[in-house]
Lab assay of single mutants.
Amino acid sequence: MGSVRTNRYSIVSSEEDGMKLATMAVANGFGNGKSKVHTRQQCRSRFVKKDGHCNVQFINVGEKGQRYLADIFTTCVDIRWRWMLVIFCLAFVLSWLFFGCVFWLIALLHGDLDTDYKDDDDKSKVSKACVSEVNSFTAAFLFSIETQTTIGYGFRCVTDECPIAVFMVVFQSIVGCIIDAFIIGAVMAKMAKPKKRNETLVFSHNAVIAMRDGKLCLMWRVGNLRKSHLVEAHVRAQLLKSRITSEGEYIPLDQIDINVGFDSGIDRIFLVSPITIVHEIDEDSPLYDLSKQDIDNADFEIVVILEGMVEATAMTTQCRSSYLANEILWGHRYEPVLFEEKHYYKVDYSRFHKTYEVPNTPLCSARDLAEKKYILSNANSFCYENEVALTSKEEEEDSENGVPESTSTDSPPGIDLHNQASVPLEPRPLRRESEIGSRR
């Protein structure tokens, strides 16, 4: 089982795998120059863009038009607004034209077009017409509009002379109601789609790998820009990579689940303020055997998904993003964004995407760390350097704002901070800030 798991979770494809794949392509008759073999020097295209759209195009789909027309309502909801407006206008105009032609044909076959009612006051002739005051196609078209929109100006009306005319008036009224219901329903469904809710759900630009509770963890940050909550919010993550099976089958995008606390339930989050999602790199993680150097040379993509129900409509929305291997910062942490004021908490989104480097973060893999092949620094050293990194950030910001350097908390000259780390230190809580992250 261990060997199978290692093969499945191998992220960085070796040169031997690339040569094996190329040999397979030639042997199977696919070596026509169009096949692409992804190596370390040639990274694959992003499968999920940063804005959440999937970078996929469908080609050679059989009976595409028929399949889309069979699900016309979903098609109308998914198309762009400009095409929705075109369909909206065409549906009414074509129905008016169709029934206008029908009423014109009825008048033509009944002989109503030969009668001039402007110079004739004989009401008996008017009563013999199928539709009064309809003696041309324009008049028939206007009567069709008046019937379907129930305008009723009063000059044109159907008589009991022709039952077919009466039937067409009733039929057009029913068709008009159906068109109204369909168009209004599609427009309302399109307006109520929770897709735009994703514009106020954000992911951090970069993911980070750092120590948390004595273990290497992959972390990324999510935030909600609205005050309205995302009900039943939960997160998922998958690692996408290519691999070759033991039988020699090439899988271009193998999807591997990344555990973010599904078993323990901590994948469900209360997204009021930005939260750091934590994936513990343990023996079940696809990143277990990867060191910093392996991450730098790897070719994979981590897709992160945030799902929840919109509070206003109770409709489920899904926000997506992805991180390539070069977008994962090893040995970094996110800057705090949640600050405790006197009577409330304040979230500073200008710090949302910012990170700071944490010294002495192990550069080895989580496996080597678990097997004690890498000796961690003293816990006080880690905490102290973590505090120094934050303090230096604040000093830089104070210097930019014009604060005198004498007010900063610099260490005395001639003292090495790293050498001082081995000395037991008193706890130094942050002056006014605390970061709330997901705790395992």
Rank of each mutant, 00 (worst) to 15 (best):
E387Y: 02
V260C: 14
C383E: 15
D116T: 15
T6C: 06
S132F: 02
R243M: 08
V278Q: 04
S381N: 09
G308F: 07
A379C: 09
G111M: 02
L85G: 03
R80C: 03
W81T: 05
E311T: 13
T39Q: 10
S127L: 15
H38W: 04
A389V: 14
S13K: 05
L253K: 10
T75N: 06
T150Y: 01
P429K: 05
E395F: 10
Q42T: 12
N380Q: 05
M168G: 07
I328N: 01
S321V: 13
L97R: 00
I375P: 11
Y345N: 10
A312N: 06
V347Q: 05
F352M: 09
G265Q: 11
H229D: 13
V304H: 02
I79D: 12
V126C: 05
G331R: 00
V158F: 02
V231E: 07
V102C: 13
E397M: 08
T313G: 11
F99K: 01
V26W: 04
F382C: 14
A129I: 04
R431E: 15
V423D: 14
E15T: 07
D299L: 07
L369P: 01
E16K: 04
N55S: 13
D122K: 00
P362F: 01
R367E: 01
I72R: 15
D213P: 01
F58R: 15
N419M: 14
G176N: 01
D51N: 09
F141R: 01
L230N: 11
V235P: 09
K190V: 03
E301T: 01
Q293A: 10
R46P: 03
Y323C: 06
I11Q: 07
K118I: 04
E395H: 07
S144D: 01
M19R: 07
S242F: 14
V170D: 00
G223W: 05
C130A: 02
N224W: 04
T39V: 08
K49N: 07
R156H: 02
W104C: 14
K193E: 08
K195D: 09
F270T: 09
P336I: 06
E387F: 01
F99G: 01
G111L: 03
N224Q: 14
N380C: 10
W220K: 00
A181D: 03
I275C: 08
Q420P: 13
S3D: 13
C101W: 03
S124D: 12
R333H: 07
R5C: 08
N386W: 03
N206H: 13
M19C: 10
I302V: 10
S264Q: 08
V131Y: 04
A165V: 03
C383A: 15
I79C: 10
R333Y: 14
L363G: 07
E340Y: 04
D257K: 06
L69M: 13
P412I: 14
F143A: 03
D282W: 02
Y250S: 15
K49L: 04
R197D: 14
L324F: 05
W220P: 01
L287H: 00
E394G: 04
R46M: 02
T361W: 01
E161M: 03
S434R: 15
F47W: 06
D121T: 10
D120Y: 00
R156V: 02
E199N: 13
G331A: 06
L329H: 05
Y153D: 03
V278K: 06
H343S: 10
L85M: 06
G154Q: 03
G331Y: 01
E161T: 08
H279M: 01
Q66V: 09
D160Q: 06
Y288C: 01
E199P: 13
F167I: 14
K36N: 04
E63N: 15
G62T: 10
T316M: 13
K118M: 02
K292D: 00
G52K: 02
G100I: 01
I277P: 01
L239E: 00
L417T: 08
L218K: 00
D78W: 09
R82M: 15
T138P: 07
C54L: 07
S322L: 00
S381M: 05
D294M: 06
T316E: 15
Q41G: 12
E146M: 04
T150R: 06
R46V: 01
E341I: 05
P427A: 14
I79Y: 05
R44L: 06
E371A: 08
F99W: 04
A210K: 01
I244P: 15
S127N: 08
N198C: 15
D348I: 01
H110Y: 02
C217I: 05
L225K: 14
S408I: 10
L108A: 11
I244R: 15
G414Y: 04
K196T: 07
R432T: 15
A25R: 11
H229T: 10
L108Y: 09
E63L: 13
P413K: 10
F339S: 08
V310Y: 09
W330C: 01
A189I: 15
E385Q: 04
K193N: 06
T149N: 04
Y250C: 09
E400A: 11
C101P: 00
A192I: 14
V37G: 12
C364L: 05
E63C: 15
T200F: 06
K195M: 05
R428H: 13
V102P: 00
R82K: 04
V134Q: 01
L97C: 04
L239W: 08
S411T: 12
K49Q: 09
P427D: 15
F352K: 01
T138M: 03
R44S: 14
G31E: 05
